[in-house]
């Protein structure tokens, strides 16, 4: 079975990010980058699929030099080889431009199944996975919390999370699965894995090699981020002044009901 997994490197959730002077991007220096947590579920599911049905897991990621570290992590977890879309021309793209590049890279793999995170934790747009499926002509199930692939590798049954409940869908492979928390417990990169990772192939592909010159990155984007808005400062709390504890409690209940509207 040919298994592919799309991953993205994002700032660590604990990193305090700063907005640049132009106001449209974060300051990159001092930021710790990690594999986006939903992509970890995708890598884990890809590896489990390989362990069950055999085959090969190919990691695909787009981004600058620093992304290689995250690719190596995926290889250390057990993926077999990688494709790194690395070129200045890939930078500054929107979901569509990025998806176009990833879909073209996947074509060189011809996967039976593709795993991706349901969203990246930086932009939170949830666009790339669905667009890749569309562009690559794959069936897809998004926000998947459980997956069963038939032994013959022809169909799959995916459980999706939906508002307040869930649904089960059957898919014909090839398909793309976007992964949600709860699907699995991602493994850690292992010591033997790290030792092997260095020798695994990481193939770089330029836009021209994908026949996408002038169509990816900023040149291929249809939407452009113009501004980043910082989180609103938290307002100070309010102190209830009252003569007696009973009166203070009554006032608190009134405020919770009428102003906060939580009761």
């Amino acid at each position: 079975m040919k298994i592919a997994v799309i991953i993205k490197q994002t700032p660590d959730t604990e990193t305090v990010v700063k907005i640049n002077d132009a106001g449209n991007d974060i300051v990159g220096t001092g930021v710790k980058y990690v594999m986006s947590p939903y992509c970890e579920f995708a890598v884990e599911e890809a590896l489990r699929t390989k362990e069950k049905l055999g085959g090969e897991v190919v990691v695909v990621s787009l981004g600058p030099d620093r992304v290689l570290e995250t690719i190596r992590t995926a290889l250390a977890m057990g993926c077999d080889r990688a494709i790194h879309l690395k070129d200045p021309a890939y930078e500054g793209g929107d979901g569509q431009a990025t998806a176009k590049a990833l879909a073209a890279a996947l074509k060189t793999v011809s996967p039976d199944i593709v795993f991706a995170g349901k969203q990246a934790i930086d932009g939170d747009q949830s666009q790339v996975a669905v667009r890749v499926a569309e562009l690559a002509g794959l069936a897809q199930a998004t926000i998947v919390t459980a997956l069963e692939i038939a032994a013959d590798g022809k169909t799959a049954k995916a459980t999706r999370r939906s508002e307040g409940g869930g649904e089960v869908v059957e898919l014909k492979l090839p398909a793309l699965i976007s992964c949600e928390k709860g699907l699995n417990e991602p493994r850690y990169a292992s010591l033997p894995g790290i030792m092997k990772a260095k020798k695994k192939e990481v193939k770089e592909l330029k836009p021209a090699e994908l026949g996408l010159e002038g169509q990816v990155g900023a040149a291929g984007a249809k939407a452009k981020r113009v501004k980043l808005l910082p989180l609103a400062e938290r307002k100070a709390g309010r102190r209830i002044e009252a003569e007696t504890p009973e009166a203070a409690a009554a006032e608190l209940v009134r405020l919770l009901r009428e102003e906060a509207k939580v009761l």
Binding site: R72, A189, S190, L191, I194, M195, K198
Partner: peptide, 15 residues
């Protein structure tokens, strides 16, 4: 080196 850094990251993540 790169490998030692990855090993350290792996230990840190788990801990």
């Amino acid at each position: 080196g790169d490998q030692h850094r990855m090993v350290q990251d792996m230990f840190r993540q788990w801990c």
